[in-house]
């Protein structure tokens, strides 16, 4: 079965985003596939390369990086949600004359069309947060 995930929760507040990443790993472990993970609203904070978490807390970023690097899962940050939160990739930083990228290279910034495409091409779209 083809799954997509819609992640609305920030990694800072609660554990919903961590649950989403764990769910994605479980989906793959069961032999299903993931079309895309779409991060929207506060969910876009998951793509920050600048967030520092205390060393005695679970790494919030690594589970997403594993999905991207080990399983080639597409991680998309909603562009309008991201830029209003100060999350810019190199292109957007240049466009708005801001310094540097704050987005990890495993994530891609794109539009809501990617969410629409995920609904059209997935058997299941699972929302986390909201």
């Amino acid at each position: 079965m083809i799954y997509s995930l819609l992640v609305l929760s920030s990694p800072v507040s609660g554990h919903t985003a961590q649950t989403a990443a764990a769910f994605a790993h479980a989906v793959l472990a069961r032999g299903h596939s993931i079309k895309r993970v779409f991060f929207f609203d506060d969910g876009t904070y998951n793509g920050s390369s600048q967030a520092i978490f205390p060393q005695d807390e679970t790494d919030r970023l690594q589970p997403w990086l594993d999905l991207s690097q080990q399983h080639s899962v597409e991680l998309i940050l909603c562009i309008s949600s991201a830029i209003r939160r100060g999350l810019l990739d190199d292109t957007e930083a240049q466009r708005y004359d801001k310094s540097g990228s704050g987005i990890h290279s495993a994530f891609t910034v794109s539009g809501l069309g990617q969410l629409v495409d995920a609904t059209a091409h997935s058997d299941r779209l699972v929302t986390f947060g909201g």
């Binding site: 309008s80 969410l115 629409v116």
Partner: peptide, 30 residues
Amino acid sequence: TLIVVRRAPYGSSLSRASLDAALALAAFDQ
């Protein structure tokens, strides 16, 4: 697709996000 809006408007950005998602789906002819 059904967009289920369970939060009050103006209290958070989720309200706007839910309606943006609805508009995007409609714009792409879903």
